[in-house]
Design a protein around this nucleic acid. Sequence first.
RNA 1: UGCCCCGUCGUCUAAUGGCAAGACGGCAGACUCUGGAUCUGCUUAUCGAGGUUCGAAUCCUUGCGGGGCAGCCA
Length: 571
Amino acid sequence: MTKPGAEHAAAGGAPESPDRSEHKNFIRDIIDQDLKTGKFAGRVHTRFPPEPNGYLHIGHAKSICLNFGLARDYKGLCNLRFDDTNPAREEVEYVESIMNDVRWLGFDWGDRLFYASDYFEQLFQFALRLIGTGKAYVCDLDADQVREFRGTLTEPGKDSPFRGRPVEENLDLFRRMRNGEFPDGSRTLRAKIDMASPNLNMRDPVMYRILRATHHRTGDTWCIYPMYDWAHGQCDSIETVTHSICTLEFTDHRPLYDWFLDALGIYRSQQIEFARLNLTYTVMSKRKLLQLVQDGRVTGWDDARMPTISGLRRRGYTPEAIRNFADRIGVARNESTSDVALLEDCLRDDLNKRAPRVMAVLRPLRLVIENYDDAGLEELDAVNNPEDHSKGVRKVPFSRVLYIERDDFRENPPKKYFRLSPGGEVRLRYAYIIKCVRVVKDKATGEVIEVRCTYDPGSKSGMQQSGRRVKGTIHWVSAAHALEAEVRLYDRLFTVEDPGGENWKELVSPHSLEVLKGCKVEPGLARVQAQDRMQFERLGYFCVDDESREGALVFNRAVTLRDSWAKIERQ
RNA sequence: UGCCCCGUCGUCUAAUGGCAAGACGGCAGACUCUGGAUCUGCUUAUCGAGGUUCGAAUCCUUGCGGGGCAGCCA
C-alpha cells in the first residue's frame, strides 16, 4: 500500500455534484404545469427554512434534497433561510451545524443565505399596514384568556373585548410594545379575521408577542418577536420564492398565509405540502432526539446511532447514499414510514462500488500453521476493490501465526457451515488452503484458545492448483503485524419498528452499541484519517471515528454486509 | 364530534380515464478465493358500497379506517 490513508480516503472525499433525480412526483407535476402556464414566468425558486433550535436529521435531508434538487433540476434557485423568530430556543451552535450539514450533503445556497430576522423591520412595517387598514389589533388578553376566547374544535370562539380598538390606539400601543413599555406577555398584536372560523388558525391568530430574550443575531434590539405564522409567508414573498414546500401539518395554515398576503397585496408563493419522513426503528422528532441527548442515552447529537445528519456522517454514511435514499423514497402526501433497510441498502450500494477492502479480525482466535516456517514471511497480493480494478492491489504480510475470527471456527460445526472445524479445510483469503489438525483449549474453561493447522504450499492464491477447491474462505491478519483497534458495532437504536407511544424511552435497544477492544486489523491501516471508510471483508462497512488516533485506532461499523449465513443460522 | 389531509404488494413510490409498474424486504436457485457483489425466478396490492363511463386505482357520492389542528412553538 503506497500511501496509507490516502487510498482509504477514496470514499470519504469532498461531495460530488449531486445527480439529477430520476423520479417524478406530484410536486414536479405541479411545477411542470406552472412552467407550462407561465405562472411564475418560468422561474423555479425554492427554499430550505430550518429553525436553528436543534440538529438536522434524515427527515430534513429529505426536504433539503427535495428543495435543492428541484432548483438543480429546473435550473432554478434554492435559498437557505433560518426561521429564527423565537430567540428563546435558538442558538448559533445550531446555525453552524445546519450550514455544515447542508454543505456536507452536497448543496450550495450561493449568496442566498437569509434569516427571518433579516426582515424584522420589514415585518414590523407590514404589521403597521395591517393595523392601518383595520386588519390587526392590539389585544390585552393574557395567554390563558386568549385560549378561553378561542373556543374549541367544535365550538366557535368569542371576540376579544379589545377587537374594536380604534386604529390610532392600535398604532400607538403597537409602537409602544416595540419600545418596551409593556411587560412580557401582557399584550399581543392579533390579526382580525374570524373568531368563528372552523379553521382555528383563522381565529384572530397572534402576530407578535412581547418577549425579552437576546436573539442570536439581533441581540436586544427587539422585545417583540413575530410568530412563525405571521413571518413565514412574508419571508417567502420577500424572497420571491415560487414554490414554498413544507410538511403536511401546515396545510391548515395555508389559508392564513394567503390571507396575510392578500391583505398586504404582495407577491404570493405557492405553498405545497408533502409528508414528512418517518423511519423504522428510530424516532425523528427534535424533542425526542434532544431528550436522548440530555438523558445521556446517546453521547450527543452526533452519536453514530442517531438519525441526525451528523450522526449518520459519524456512523459512516455518505452524502451520496443519503441523497440516493431521498430520491428512492419519493415524495407524496401519504403519511408513511420508510424501512430503514432501504437506507442501509443505499449505503451498501454506494460503498460496495467505492470502499477499499481490507482485512480485520474483530474477535481474534489464534491460529498457528505448524508446517509453515517459524521465521517465514510473505507479502501477498490482495485486491483493493473487486468492483473497481483500477484501485489495484496491496501487499499483506503472511506468517506462521495468524488471527482469525472466532466465528469462523466451530468445534462442532452445524450443517452447511463452510468455515473451519477440526479436520476440515478452508481457504485463507489471498493465501493458502489450511487444514485444522487440532485445537488447544484453556484447561480451566474448556474454551478453544488456539487452532493448530497445516497448510498446502501448492494452494497459494493465484496458482492454478488442479481442481483444488474448498467451500469456505475466511479472512485473517498476521499476528506479528496486526494493529490493535477498537471497533464500535452499532445496531438499530430501538428494539421495535415504531417506538412511538409513551414508553418510547424504554424501547432503546440495549444492543444498539457494542464496543470491541483488542481487534486486529491489517498494518496498512496505520495512518487512516477520521471519516475514511472501508469494507472489512466479510464483515461490513466501517468508518474511522473522529476519536481515532494513530496508535489508538477506532472504527465504527456503518452497516453489515448482507449475511446469508446469519439467516440460515437463525432458522 | 367542527375543519383539513390521506387510503395501491409486508414497506416506499409509479401508473395523470385505457395491460396495476419499479425499488426495498422475504423466499428459491445460479455463480463466487468476501456465505459480499452479480444474475435468475417466485411472492404479494388498488379499504368497502353505490354512481358516471365503452372503459375507473384515477372522476362523483357515501361509509369505514388512519393522521393533523384548540402555543404568546415552528
